[in-house]
């Protein structure tokens, strides 16, 4: 079992690394270097080069910038929805509860990727980016998060728990924000937020990879920006065609592991006592 504090420290360090990568991302990639014959990290530290001789760290940094803000935004959105779901159940607002369930039925009726593609299709070209897609993903994930938070709130006493704290003379802030959200719902809110953050990163990689593999423009970022999918596509070429980009596959998988590690760490750190 992973301890709470080490998990928090590890996830904070990994998250800081991702943010740092996003912050130092160059606006434009370096020019191509077709004279480069060795693409590995020894020739161009620290991560090597892509097929045009450009440093891979620049691609990794631009990819981090593409996902950083939208994924965190989606995570916060789902976390807020989960908190609302839990609070609604704690306050026994049966009508709001039914409305949330009905919303969940409607939103959950279609496959998520189909909805995402439709949103991508309907967005005007100048508005294309990861943020609207991340918000849509968060909206699609919200009913599940609200449902789980509501179940946790109910299991931990629901309205009776709130009534008991009222009887102790606690303020509304202390009851709902500190006890219900902070203590009771924290594990589920943080886990759901972290998982959706991770899912949005994976969504970006998926959408960009699908576009990159067919030489099409991506839905998630402008054409002059590269994403982690480009790194993974180089890795695919290394695997399938023995192209000299195994270092790119390693970097791509490391970046994915970094995101997954942050999610695991945060979920572990926030788990119930």
């Amino acid at each position: 079992m992973i301890k709470r504090w080490p998990a928090l420290v590890v996830s904070a360090v990994l998250f800081a690394l991702l943010l740092l990568l996003a912050l130092v991302a160059p606006e434009f990639l370096s020019g191509p270097n077709f004279d480069l014959t060795d693409f590995g990290p020894s020739a161009l530290p620290p991560f090597g080069a892509d097929d045009r001789g450009r440093p891979l760290w620049e691609l990794a940094a631009q990819g981090a910038r593409v996902v950083a803000l939208p994924s965190v935004f989606a995570g916060l959105m789902v976390g807020s929805f989960a908190a609302v779901g839990g609070l609604i159940r704690s306050m026994e607002w049966s009508r709001a509860d039914s409305a949330v369930q009905a919303f969940g039925e409607i939103v959950g009726a279609m496959p998520r990727m189909v909805v995402i593609l439709i949103v991508a299709l309907l967005l005007p070209r100048d508005m294309r980016g990861l943020l609207p897609l991340a918000a849509t993903w968060a909206l699609l994930s919200a009913p599940g998060a609200m449902d789980e938070a509501a179940a946790v709130a109910e299991r931990l006493g629901g309205a009776r728990f709130v009534e008991a704290l009222r009887a102790h003379g606690y303020s509304r802030w202390r009851i709902f924000v500190v006890h219900v959200v902070g203590y009771n719902l924290r594990p589920v809110i943080v886990r759901q937020a972290a998982e959706v953050t991770m899912q949005v990163v994976f969504l970006e990689i998926s959408l960009s990879y699908l576009a990159t593999s067919n030489n099409d423009p991506s839905f998630t970022h402008p054409d002059n920006v590269r994403s982690w999918a480009d790194i993974l596509h180089l890795g695919y070429r290394a695997l399938a065609f023995e192209a000299p980009f195994m270092h790119a596959l390693f970097l791509g998988l490391t970046l994915v592991a970094l995101v997954a590690g942050t999610t695991i760490g945060l979920s572990r750190a926030a788990r119930a006592r």
């Binding site: 959950g108 009726a109 279609m110 496959p111 998520r112 990727m113 189909v114 593609l117 439709i118 991508a120 299709l121 998926s206 990879y209 699908l210 576009a211 593999s213 067919n214 099409d216």
Partner: peptide, 29 residues
């Protein structure tokens, strides 16, 4: 099953399976 249908879009495009997901992706592009 809905989750599988959602993932099928990605898998069909990457593995070049001529399914509905691939069709939707090409049309959306």
């Amino acid at each position: 099953i809905l989750h599988l249908m959602s993932g099928a879009v990605v898998v069909e495009v990457v593995l070049k399976i001529d399914g509905l997901g691939d069709l939707l992706w090409q049309a959306a592009l």
